[in-house]
Every structure is written in structure tokens, then in C-alpha cells.
Design a protein around this nucleic acid. Structure first.
Lengths: 153, 153
DNA sequence: TTTATTATGGATAAATTTGTCCTAAATAAA
DNA sequence: TTTATTTAGGACAAATTTATCCATAATAAA
């Protein structure tokens, strides 16, 4: 009996794309390079017109900055990159429900009035939340640069 | 700047419904009651025709058992309930990607050839996986029965 | 054997997510 | 000032997920 949905990941596809894009832009920014949509698309193996929309969202959210015209493109400045948590990227696309809401989607579920899974699930959510809130984009870009991470597509 | 998707939860809606349904059926089975689709639908606050499909999947997966006709309905026998892990319910609906696959959806990502988030994300995934694999449906039904959990809808 | 009850299953619709295409606006360089 | 380059943004299409409707099959009781 195969599952109904073979690939239901933790984050939406849009969010996965956003994460890859941000990390790629960060690594290039560290080298002083501004990158174009087309670069992002193939570095992160995503459909170009689609990642363009996502980049627009990231720009509007102040996560990356963009410049039109020749020699334009996307970048993240060093200062920003060091402050920017990966959770902010997730939040801009998927919101915070993945690390704040009930495993069964119950609106009323909380410590005082819990669903049966609540206490066990809170542990997982909390670990996810704290990981997202403590990991900077700079950290991740460094991992690639130093060879501690090897793939991005 | 609001997120693109306001409610992207860890599990799909179908999966959330399945979890509520299974726990509800379990509590009723503990009382020796077989339950009808309509009961499940309003106990778990889900559209009836939709939960019917999900129940069909759960029946085919051997997670619950069903009986047609008058006095029919769904149930989970005690033995089964004690062995049944909540992870099996998740798996039947959403598959295992949520606790096995890369945060960015990268097929090639693993310990030897990791993406930049890999090591941090593995911790979260692993905690989720072990929570799902150690929590039985019986445990959860007991929580409701004993008043340690108070809501299911 | 008839009737009422309940799950099964197919068809289809609505909503959301993912993906594509095309034109406009901004900008740098020639 | 013209041209080439690049992001912005609207309209739309495809795919997936969520949801509804209705007819059928199975079963228990009268």
C-alpha cells in the first residue's frame, strides 16, 4: 500500500527553492558577485520564471536586494547575511505554522488545552524552530565555501 | 510582508484528518463502540465525503478495520492499537519524506555529500521520526480517556 | 426476502500550488 | 539618446490537493 502522496516534504517546493536561492546568492555575494535570475535558476535547478517570482517575494521581504539593468541582479550584503536567519526565509514563504501549529491543525491546541500529541509534538516543533532561528545564512554559505557542504542542486 | 502561504503545516490536511480519525476511532474502540463515517466526520470536524476516502485508505493499509451494513463502521482492536505507531498513519497518507528527505528536497543529499543545512536538519528529522515511531495510538487514546489531553477538534 | 443501514468507489468540481509566457520598467554603457 | 540587459509584474495554464455527489455493494435485522 503506497502512501497517497509520495513526496510531502517539510517545506513547500517554493520554500525549498527559496532556501537554495538564498544560499546560492549568499555564496556569490561573498565573492563580490551579483547574480542573475538565470544563474539562480540553474544553480538551484529550478524553473526560471518560477524562481523569479520567489525572488521577488524575497526582495520585497528585504531578504535579498535587487538591481535592474545591466550588471544588475541579486545580492545580500555581508552585514545582512550575518544577521539573517534561515528561519526568516522559511517564514517569508511558508509562514510559521510548520514550527508553531498543532500536528493535527487544531486551532485551540496549547499547553493548557492540548491535543493528544501536543506535548510530544511541541518538542519536535521547538527543536525545528530553534534550529531555524539560530542558523544564519552566512553560516550556510561558509559551509559551501569551506567544502563542509558539497551540494546545492 | 505576509508569507505567501499562511498555513503550511508539517502534515497535509489529509494527514491531519487521518490522525484525528484514528485517535477518535481508537478511543471509541476502547469503549467497545464501532463508529460510523458521520461520527468520525463530526468528532474530528472534517468534511464527511472527504474523510470517507481517507478512511478507505486507512482500511486498505490495515490501520483500521471496517464493516459494512447496520451496526457496521470502523474500529481498531486493542492488540492492534497497542502496536500501531502514529508514524504508520502519517506514512500511509504523506509518506516518509517529511522525516527522511532533505530540507531543500535534494535527492543526493546525505551524510557523505551534504547540503549546507544537512547536519542541522538531520537532528530535527531524527527527533520527529523517533517520536512518530515510538508513540502508539493506544498511548494517545489513553491520554484523551484520562483527561491528560482535552481536545480533538 | 425485504428493508434499512453503512462502507465502497467513481466521477467531477473547487481551491491551491506550481509552472509558463509575455510585456513593461529601470538602468548602465556605448 | 539609443541600445542591450536585467528585474518587475500581470495573465494564464498545468498539476496536485481538497472537497462534493451519487450510485453500488454488503450486511444485519425484521
Amino acid at each position: 500500500m503506497p502512501p497517497i502522496k509520495e513526496e510531502r516534504n517539510m517545506f513547500s517546493k517554493s520554500c525549498e527553492y527559496a532556501l537554495k536561492a538564498v544560499i546560492y546568492i549568499a555564496t556569490q555575494s561573498l565573492e563580490g558577485r551579483r547574480v542573475k535570475i538565470a544563474d539562480v535558476a540553474d544553480s538551484s535547478n529550478t524553473p526560471q520564471a518560477f524562481i523569479a517570482k520567489i525572488l521577488r517575494t524575497l526582495t520585497k521581504s528585504g531578504i535579498v536586494s535587487s538591481l535592474k539593468g545591466p550588471y544588475g541582479g541579486f545580492e545580500i550584503d555581508l552585514q545582512k547575511m550575518k544577521e539573517l536567519k534561515i528561519g526568516e526565509v522559511v517564514f517569508a514563504i511558508d509562514g510559521d505554522a510548520v514550527y508553531t501549529s498543532c500536528s493535527m491543525g487544531l486551532k485551540e491546541c496549547n499547553d493548557a488545552d492540548p491535543c493528544p500529541m501536543h506535548h510530544k509534538f511541541v518538542k519536535v516543533r521547538t527543536e525545528l524552530k530553534s534550529m531555524l532561528e539560530t542558523t544564519t545564512v552566512y553560516d550556510l554559505a561558509q559551509k559551501l565555501k569551506s567544502g563542509k557542504a558539497t551540494i546545492l542542486r
